[in-house]
Design a protein around this nucleic acid. Structure first.
Lengths: 211, 211
DNA sequence: CCTACCGATCGGTAGG
DNA sequence: CCTACCGATCGGTAGG
């Protein structure tokens, strides 16, 4: 019980540290310290540092697998515009719930592009295909612009969410000041996300019911 | 002369290796091996590994500074649509000319978000402001959609190019199969870029002269 | 899950 | 720009 709890703790801390400093920049010692155990104890739960990395990645992708059904439900409900909103909300929500996910994914794609390709083929591809199929149906119906490349569009939107939420919590990464409405201030990240959603919507639909 | 050549070689190889494996994943020894010199000789040209990192980053940003004038010229020429094409071409060209640039920037933004913010404020912000100002002028003229958030739009497009060109040369990273037109095959990256440009254009302009 | 320990490699220095 | 070398830390193992 305590052992299982420590295993979970190792995964949690490893995820956090690797997301922040990268895999090579994170030592087993620093993970052990964060958990409050000794370094060899980390290797009792995971046979090697590489195995720990794998476990961290698989946990992330398994969380994604939990989201997919909701995503597909959203996909098959209502008509085009509402689908769009539901899917975008799920996508952004997934990375917002834990920004480490976005950072970790970006790092893994940079560090091990070949290994990641097979993983993403397994976990992201099926969902992308479903959405793309719906987009093509929308194109036949005239709601979705004919010029849209469905798969490329999906990937572009996913990447946009990824980058937006991976970058420093405070700002949309590069730099976005705040914009004031009387007493309310809107963060750079929210500004970025709002513009991304707007651009995604306008680039997708032929009609303009968007604001 | 040979010393200067070696210094350049160190910068070149360090850029390549850090882009591929990250800063922490790149040892001074591996850089020395790539250049064909001994490890301490690297530290003769650069006082520390951190200083080498800095030099690599500054070289990248100075290349960016060379591109900016062309970008601004493109910005002040012709009318809205042509401006758009010229700026997009410069932006994509900058990262296409050397994909390590995109990977390196993404890594630095992940590794040192705070330090990067000040750098990007200095190097990217002025250019972003000019483009944003033009977008607002376009909004007053009715060419650019009123709902566009100029700064956020620019950032979104920059990030899109960054991710598109950072990911494995062969594919648009996650996964994009090829699409055939008789004998011609279009790579996943080109598909991604084409869709990104289309989406950027449509999300920007109120009229649709785009295909 | 710990203590004790391993060889390898890390960034960096001395001295020429 | 090299040889020779430094202490620190790396991932990982032995043995309990």
């Amino acid at each position: 019980m305590n052992a299982l709890d420590n295993r979970t703790q190792i995964l949690t801390q490893a995820t956090r540290l690797i997301a922040a400093r990268g895999f090579e920049g994170t030592s087993l010692q620093s993970i052990a310290d964060a958990v409050g155990i000794r370094k060899p104890s980390v290797l009792y739960h995971f046979p090697s540092k590489a195995a720990l990395r794998q476990a961290v990645l698989e946990q992330l992708l398994s969380h994604w697998s939990e989201v997919v059904p909701r995503l597909l439900m959203a996909t098959s409900a209502e008509d085009g515009m509402d689908r769009f909103d539901a899917i975008m909300a799920e996508l952004i929500g997934f990375f917002s719930r834990d920004p480490d996910r976005a950072r970790l994914l970006l790092r893994e794609m940079l560090d091990r592009p070949d290994d990641m390709r097979s993983y993403l083929t397994k976990f992201v591809r099926p969902w992308m295909d479903v959405v793309a199929r719906n987009l093509r149906a929308g194109q036949r119906g005239g709601l979705v612009r004919a010029a849209v490349d469905p798969e490329a569009w999906v990937l572009y939107v996913v990447h946009g969410s990824l980058v937006a939420l991976a970058m420093a919590d405070g700002a949309g990464c590069v730099l976005e000041p705040v914009e004031r409405d009387e007493q309310d201030a809107i963060t750079g990240r929210d500004r970025y996300l709002a513009e991304m959603v707007r651009a995604a919507r306008v680039s997708l639909f032929d009609e303009r019911r968007t604001v």
